[in-house]
Design a protein around this nucleic acid. Structure first.
Lengths: 412, 412
DNA sequence: ATACATTTTGGGGATTTTCACAAATGATCA
DNA sequence: TGATCATTTGTGAAAATCCCCAAAATGTAT
């Protein structure tokens, strides 16, 4: 057998499964075909030899997330996304993966999916790899068909989602019908997630996002769409024990992966409260937007805050900023401290802020300020004197904290 | 000489000073005449023997405050206010007071003033005391004249003050003219003080108030008036180093004395910021009223707060209460804790509040709660679990504090 | 009534924090 | 330039807080 051999895949089948079986027969090993998001498209059945990773993939109709993660870390997937050649993947027992060969399926410069060939008994030879490459080419058209069909469905998703977000669908019955028409199981409880990117999201990035959302197995994504620099997602929270911490973990992982895998940094993410009533999707969306607005104003302070409930005092900041702009109030202590800083070019205000940020913990604050704890103690003594502050009075401390944050953003 | 003796005081003089000299000549000792507020009205000059207390009184044209305080504590003044008989006052070196006899001057059941007779060389005899009583009676009419003249002046004061408080006088020049017409030296800086009594202020209480204000030497009272249950005072703050702490001390002392001397409790006192512009007296007044409104809502929390600047977060409470009424927000942690309290009839919310009131100090809070410190530690651990609270996060703590206070007063 | 979970209290040691003092450095002003 | 004041850092002892354990008390459910 040479690479000039007659192409055994130049036949047309109705389903991808038949392709999988054919490839399996030719190469004499189990075959799996996935789309670009590692969803299972087809798998060969004639061969019963397999490995745990493949079993999980077939059972869950998608590649398990930890396998994907491992393949990213270890470099297989990045390579597959770069080359059209078959890639040999070594044994990775810890995730139940035995020896195998993978190849990506290309349409021009875009990856449509992957074929996996397990090397259970013997390794594939050079000519087998050439055959695999031919198989990948043959499968391409079938995948393209699937994709266009998917795109059309996608458009209907988009339309529906925007109607929900903008509150155009007022009737519960109607909404449920739409869900069913799109074959989405309507969730009992849901939330809106929004990821705000630095710049408008390009179509390349859109693909990456899509990939990340599809391959995640942490959370059930119902709908998602992109609006300028925002990725808006509707997720089901039905299966969660602690919905908020689960959502928090998810957004953190998402942001982390966008950075690790694609080098996209500074994504600001938020999510809404948990709702049951589909008519309130618009409200949930508004909620995310108001949280985003505050996070944009106070990025440092709200770094670890993702939803309205956790905003804490920042919930009030719009209101308070307004009040402060209107009335001629001035915080006496802060004024004094600013004057002192000005005169002696010291950093008492900054010191105070870090101290309060750190919950009045001298050690932590000193660490953040890179000074000796005694230095901070001394400064605080001075701050208390100059600003006439009693650090034992929670009311005073709170007011200082609020006014510190408020004066930072009075200009906005 | 007997008590049936011809009355030597049955003559009429133009000024009180002449009376003082006459009495001095008859009794052969220095004489001082004061009004009901211990302001010097007249003093004899023919006799040069005197004591430090009398010197200070004459120099300052009023009895020194510490002397008045001592005479109250030791019982002289209370007795003088009860009896028409002469009272012998023993030597009190610590305040520079040598032996003397005092008598009050009465018009029906009201005390108009006092006559003091110093016993420098020899004690007054029984017949001298009888003479003194006659003298007191003779002086009465002169004092009455003074008083009615004062009352008329008082009325003009009142009218002017109310015009200032209600902002009816807009012209700086005009205001200054009024001040001068009333022989008040216009202060460079001033503040408004308001004392809110439990009940409407009776005319009896009005006299006590007047007495306390007049005899105080801590602060310069420019004008005062009474409105239902409020005493409103305009004071000069020109001579103060730390105006706020001086004002604070003054109001505390005032409230204390109203209680000690007259048994009037639960006076709520506030004062405005320091102003320079007389046109802003109305604003200062409004400020006191808004602080009073908040102190009425949060009496416990604002017990030690007297002015707007010190209100701290309570400045915002009207605004925040409004916001909370409008939107359907609920503090998740507090909700959980309330539910727990309900179910297990425990006191986690109360515990949390006391803990936060005490600036997260375990010992202080435990003391206030009358439980062992370890008990509080345990409860806090439970509170953190149940309410999903991180006590190291100042934002969370602040929000809890705010919501705790807010929910207490949502009904108002 | 009994078993079980929760809460309260206490002891005592480890760990931190606080405090006072001293030395060194930096800034300021005549 | 020296004298003075403000600031920073270090040290070590005293005080306080934290933490773990266990016993007792209380409440709860079967």
């Amino acid at each position: 057998m040479s690479s000039k051999l007659h192409d055994p895949f130049k036949t047309s089948f109705d389903s991808l499964d038949e392709y999988a079986d054919l490839i399996s027969q030719v190469l004499k090993c189990p075959i799996t075909i996935e789309d670009a998001n590692h969803r299972l498209l087809a798998y060969s059945t004639h061969d019963e030899r397999t490995d745990p990773a493949r079993i999980s993939t077939i059972i869950g109709r998608r590649v398990p997330e930890k396998v994907i993660n491992q393949l990213w870390k270890e470099g297989t997937i990045p390579t597959l996304l770069k080359t059209k050649e078959p890639i040999r993947v070594k044994n990775m027992e810890e995730i139940g993966l035995s020896h195998r060969v993978a190849i990506s399926i290309w349409k021009q410069d875009e990856v449509l999916g992957f074929i996996w060939a397990l090397e259970i008994d013997q390794s594939l030879k050079e000519e087998d790899l050439a055959l695999l490459k031919k198989a990948a080419d043959a499968v391409k058209n079938k995948l393209l068909q699937l994709q266009t069909r998917k795109n059309k469905k996608e458009e209907r998703f988009q339309e529906f989602f925007w109607k929900l977000l903008t509150g155009h669908l007022k009737d519960q019955e109607e909404i449920l019908e739409h869900f069913h028409a799109l074959q989405i199981n309507p969730p009992a409880t849901f939330a809106i997630l929004v990821f705000q990117f630095k710049k408008n999201i390009s179509s390349k990035e859109e693909q990456w996002i899509s990939y990340l959302l599809q391959t995640n197995q942490r959370i059930k994504i119902l709908l998602y769409t992109i609006d300028c620099n925002q990725l808006i997602v509707l997720v089901s929270t039905d299966t969660f024990q602690n919905p908020f911490s689960e959502l928090e973990q998810f957004v953190q992982v998402f942001v982390e992966k966008m950075n690790e895998r694609y080098g996209i940094k500074d994504i600001i993410s938020v999510f809404s409260s948990i709702y049951e009533d589909y008519q309130l999707i618009g409200k949930a969306y508004e909620e995310t937007q108001s949280v985003l607005a505050i996070k944009n104003k106070f990025p440092y302070e709200t770094k670890h805050i993702y939803n309205y409930h956790k905003l804490g005092i920042y919930q009030f900041f719009d209101l308070l900023l307004e009040k402060r702009k209107v009335e001629p109030y001035e915080n006496y202590s802060l004024k004094k401290l600013h004057e002192y800083d000005q005169k002696h070019n010291s950093h008492l205000v900054k010191t105070l802020e870090v101290y309060l940020n750190n919950d009045a913990n001298i050690n932590d604050a000193a660490k953040e300020l890179n000074v000796h704890a005694n230095t901070l103690t001394y400064r605080l003594k001075r701050i208390a004197e100059i600003g006439e502050i009693n650090f034992k009075d929670p009311n005073q401390k709170m007011m200082l904290y609020l006014d510190l944050k408020l004066e930072k953003y009075k200009g906005i």
